[in-house]
Nucleic acid binder design. Structure first.
Length: 791
DNA sequence: CCACGGTGAGTTTTT
DNA sequence: CTCACCGTGG
């Protein structure tokens, strides 16, 4: 990666660069070898270079391949130089992969693609070149979420708003949302502005933006928003980029938010050679501002667009693909694709009910061990959960079994406390105007520079309109500070002066080490006797090590603010545990999908907050989950799960009913499970085995034989058994499930007993679903099969 | 400045 | 239940 801070023009390719090599590789006249082994649709997606192109690429249809080959093709045929192609992705990982693959296709390293990157990195690059046009300097700092919140807290305090009632986090969420939608403070709808701090939301947003400018800083949202402003207020700048980018490519188009969409549209309106690749069925980020509509209205925005559907799946077996397709077909708002595979049907998708989440974890553990015995690698298995809270039980079980696993997601390397602290030190050294960084470390390690001193600094700095560090330097020369903080601060400032003077003189990673050493930061952790301290020191070492890859301190800091990634150099074979969101774009031979229960998945909150749109997004998430599997997809649900510490009786997800029966095998949990080491409640009422032995299960089974549908305790309109796609809208709000036509033997007022919740009285009856006021556990909704008459 | 207890909340997450 | 956060008291 070239130094991202350098502003020199890379418009012309270097001699002997990628383009030259690429042209050489196709000069023989025969078909370019990168076009071999592509199916006709893929070729169309690649060879339609001119005009707008929308590629609807289903899961596993070779989306990345099309994108990378398209770039290679444009370069190889001499249509554009690498520096004239804009290619944007969402994640650094995707960008890196693309870079590698393009390079591979053209037989070289794709160093000549300066405009291949994430939306944010490309946005930053453009913004740095024209920073002064939007009130920033080209060396502006990029704030992370932490800095953002702290800054907002200051803004809220300055406005004298009760921080308890209106937390900075909430404001951050609002502002983020507005920025995602491309809204500057003056454009915020009054109704939304009113939603925070009695109508002061918009005002706070404006104040926050003003503070950012003062600090010469931008947050993530600004990286795009300020680009929009730049393009709108300076048409000449926009035009220069429109001319430069002969071809524009977009990955994961279904995930673009409004700001990204507007940005793309502005840039693409020049030459109109824009191609977007995406899959509406995999849009799972609506909650953070992604607009599926962007993909749905592509043809409207770019009339005459070529639409290519990639429907041949190269990843999964027949049963897996059929299950996923059938499930997602229940969504109404979709463009519709029919995926097919030439692979064998393979193993059916399995569906297993467990008594509770502990048993579920046990079953998954057993299955993994069984597969391992058959020679399957743990690295080719993944457990995909809906929410992180599900991970713990799975992990606990794996620990017990000694199964190697890796949790993917969670706190990233650069989000760790010690890394942020260390970076704050470095930021102060590199940029003495970085107030937020200075505030972060001025008293870390503890040096007796407490709130009172900081406040004095602030007052001074505000009055003189200078950065905190400069204020500190001046103040230690006065007698405004108490003697002790004064001398401490003087020492600290002297140290910063010393470090800053060595930026050019020594290697930046050595300087970092020196700073951490002399500041007492390393020492602080060495003295710390807590369990994490050793790991934190290790992380600090890793940080210093990773700096070697960058040309200088500035380059490194730019990298960390945009590329928040943990280095994972652990190559041992492990089962992956991650959220469904985290699994997008990945694939595994075997995928375990636990927790398919109403309320959890689909998630009740998604339903409550977003209604039908929320349900459909949840369903797409299920689709993403199943389609991660190459050979085996294993779905689980439990009848009881502990939520917020309380055991809840749960019913299987409606998605279970929406799977096609002919592609799914319902597996019985082995009978011996209930007996051993079971949950603490197992002992309360011994039962011979799994859910399948409970009266409720048996009754559900009997019912499903009668009706040919349902089967899992709740028979809904569509058929798991019937194999028919549902018609008409789904019932989603207000009720956990649709009404059942099957009545219950219980009636209001009956005294009943539940194995987990104890005694209670029936408050309401809805089909076979009872609302019960339990004497101890409170009001719950349970299926009648799980209770018996008390007495 | 730290340690403790009380309180409240509790999807999904990248950049 | 469990974690994070805040406020208080030593």
């Amino acid at each position: 990666m070239s130094n991202p801070l350098s502003l020199d023009d890379d418009y012309q390719p270097r001699p002997g660069g990628l383009a030259a090599r690429a042209r050489a590789s196709v000069s023989g006249g025969q078909q370019a070898n990168y076009l071999q082994n592509l199916n006709p649709e893929q070729r169309r997606a690649i060879e339609t270079t001119e005009g707008p192109v929308l590629v609807l690429a289903g899961a596993g249809t070779g989306k990345t391949r099309v994108l990378t080959t398209r770039i290679a093709h444009i370069i190889a045929t001499g249509l554009a130089f690498p520096s004239q192609i804009l290619a944007v992705t969402f994640t650094n990982k995707a960008a890196r992969e693309m870079k590698e693959r393009v390079g591979h296709l053209l037989g070289g390293v794709a160093e000549g693609m300066p405009w291949l990157g994430t939306f944010h990195s490309v946005g930053t690059k453009i913004l740095r070149r024209h920073a002064e046009l939007v009130g920033l300097r080209s060396d502006f700092t990029i704030l992370d979420t932490d800095d953002q919140i702290r800054l907002m807290r200051q803004v809220i305090q300055a406005e004298d708003i009760d921080e308890k009632r209106w937390p900075a986090r909430a404001l951050a969420a609002f502002i983020d949302g507005w920025k995602n939608r491309g809204l500057t403070p003056d454009k915020v709808p009054a109704g939304e502005s009113a939603a925070f701090a009695n109508g002061r939301g918009g005002k706070l947003y404006a104040a926050y933006q003003a503070r950012l400018k003062q600090l010469n800083a931008a947050d993530f949202g600004d990286l795009l928003l300020e680009n929009l402003r730049l393009f709108r207020e300076h048409p000449d700048v926009l035009q220069s980029y429109q001319e430069r980018f002969k071809y524009i490519l977009v990955d994961e188009y279904q995930d673009t938010n409004v700001a990204q969409y507007l940005w793309l549209r502005l840039l693409a309106q020049g030459r109109r050679n824009v191609s977007c690749v995406g899959d509406d069925d995999q849009s799972i980020y609506g909650w953070r501002g992604a607009e599926v509509d962007n993909i749905l209205r592509f043809e409207h925005d770019f009339p005459g667009a070529t639409v290519v559907r990639l429907e041949r799946n190269y990843r999964s077996t027949g049963h897996i693909l059929a299950s996923a397709s059938h499930l997602v077909a229940h969504n109404e708002g979709r463009l519709g694709k029919t995926l097919h595979t030439e692979d064998e049907p393979g193993e059916k998708v399995t569906l297993t009910g467990a008594w509770d989440s502990e048993e579920e974890a046990r079953l998954i553990g057993e299955e993994i061990e069984a597969l391992q015995h058959k020679g399957h690698s743990p690295a080719q298995m993944a457990v995909l959960v809906r929410i992180s809270a599900q991970m713990r039980e799975i992990e606990d079980r794996f620990v017990t079994l000694g199964l190697p696993y890796r949790v993917i997601g969670g706190p990233r390397f650069y989000e760790r406390l010690e890394i942020r602290d260390a970076l704050a030190y470095l930021r102060c050294v590199a940029n003495p105007t970085d107030d937020l960084a200075f505030e972060r470390i001025v008293n870390t390690p503890k040096r007796g520079l407490g709130d009172a001193t900081i406040e004095q600094l602030h007052v001074y700095a505000r009055k003189a309109r200078i950065p905190l560090m400069q204020a500190a330097r001046q103040m230690v020369e006065t007698d405004e500070l108490k003697p002790k903080p004064r001398s401490t601060l003087r020492e600290l400032m002297a140290a910063f002066g010393r470090w800053a003077s060595r930026i050019d003189g020594m290697k930046h990673n050595e300087l970092a080490e020196l700073v951490l050493e002399e500041s007492g930061y390393t020492d602080m952790w060495q003295k710390d006797r807590t369990a994490e301290a050793a790991g934190r020191l290790e992380n600090l070492k890793e940080l210093v090590r990773s700096m070697e890859e960058f040309p200088d301190l500035g380059g490194f800091l730019e990298h960390v603010s945009l590329v928040m990634e943990a280095s994972d150099n652990d190559s041992t074979e492990k089962v992956s545990i991650m959220t469904l969101h985290g699994a997008k774009g990945l694939e595994f031979d075997t995928v375990f999908l636990p927790g398919w229960e109403e309320g959890l998945f689909p998630n009740q909150r998604a339903l409550d907050e977003s209604g039908k749109a929320g349900l459909e997004e949840e369903r797409r998430l299920a689709y993403v989950g199943i389609t991660r599997a190459r050979r085996r997809a294993k779905i689980y649900f439990a009848s009881n799960r502990r939520i917020h510490g309380m055991w809840q009786s749960t019913i299987p997800s409606r998605f279970v009913d929406e799977l096609p029966e002919s592609h799914v095998e319902v597996t019985e949990a082995p009978a011996h499970y209930g007996g051993y080491g079971g949950s603490r409640f197992d002992r309360a009422q011994p039962f011979s085995g799994s859910t399948y032995d409970t009266p409720g299960w048996q009754r559900a089974q009997a019912r499903s034989r009668e009706t040919g549908g349902g089967g899992f305790g709740e028979s809904r309109q569509s058929g798991f058994g019937g194999g028919q796609a549902r018609k008409g809208p789904l019932l989603i709000e207000g009720e956990l499930v649709a009404k059942s036509s099957v009545g219950s033997d219980f009636s209001t007022g009956d005294r009943v007993f539940h194995v987990k919740f104890g005694n209670g009285s029936v408050a309401a009856v809805d089909g076979n679903k009872l609302t019960i006021d339990f004497d101890k556990a409170g009001r719950k909704m349970v299926l009648d099969g799980f209770v018996q008459r008390a007495g």
